[in-house]
């Protein structure tokens, strides 16, 4: 009888300790751990020429870096607000772990640095998203893209980088400037396209 009482008491104490730890102590302690803070930055953008002739290809080289902590994903986005199709955009080379993807108008995109489905918007113009999953701290990746403008005049290239999850302000680049179709800041690089 005494053995049974001791056994029951020991098991009861063990369970009280376990459920207290699992349901209260550990959750409290782990929720106070701050989320990782990646810092997205575009360190280099090179255009093959400031002016091109209609029909001539424009080459864009973009380099992105994560200057903060590890990111689960970081995107370097190159947008072409003058283009409504992706058929004259080519990825010449890149050193990202995953293959960059072409975004055609009409596709769903997230917006305002949010990763939830209810913030989705429809793409209005063509773009390329080069990304790494995960993008470790301090790592740098480059993509070289070729695009052929379809009309003469001012041809604009939008460039930005976003780290996910977007845990703080420095997780996106640039910090201000023009706002794109996703309501996110971009750097603009205009090129003049002239008649042949």
């Amino acid at each position: 009888m005494l053995k049974a009482i001791i056994l029951t008491a020991a098991v009861a104490v063990a369970l009280v300790v376990y459920f207290s730890l699992s349901l209260y102590v550990f959750p409290q302690s782990y929720q106070s751990i701050e989320a990782q803070r990646p810092q997205a930055i575009v360190t280099d953008v090179r255009l093959s020429a400031p002016d091109i002739v209609l029909g001539q290809a424009l080459t864009i080289s973009v380099t992105g870096t994560n200057n903060g902590e590890d990111a689960d994903m970081q995107i370097v986005s190159v947008g072409f607000p003058n283009l409504t199709t992706t058929d004259n955009i080519k990825i010449l080379k890149h050193d990202f772990d995953q293959t960059p993807i072409l975004i055609a108008p009409g596709e769903l995109l997230s917006s305002e640095y949010s990763d939830t489905a209810d913030s989705s918007v429809l793409a209005q113009y063509a773009s390329i998203e080069a990304f790494n999953r995960p993008w470790e701290a301090g790592k740098t990746y480059t993509a070289e893209i070729e695009v052929i403008p379809k009309t003469e005049g001012r041809f604009v290239v939008f460039i930005k980088s976003v780290a996910l999850p977007h845990t703080w302000e420095q997780a996106h680049y640039p910090q201000d400037g023009t706002v794109d179709q996703q309501k996110e800041f971009v750097e603009t690089y205009p090129v003049q396209v002239t008649k042949p």
Binding site: A35, T116, L164
Partner: peptide, 21 residues
């Protein structure tokens, strides 16, 4: 109904454990 990024698994898990259990 959150996006479960690998780095956020612990945060989401410990947020819901007291509700789910």
């Amino acid at each position: 109904s959150k996006v479960v990024w690998p780095s956020m698994i612990a945060q989401i898990y410990f947020e819901m454990i007291q509700n789910v259990f």
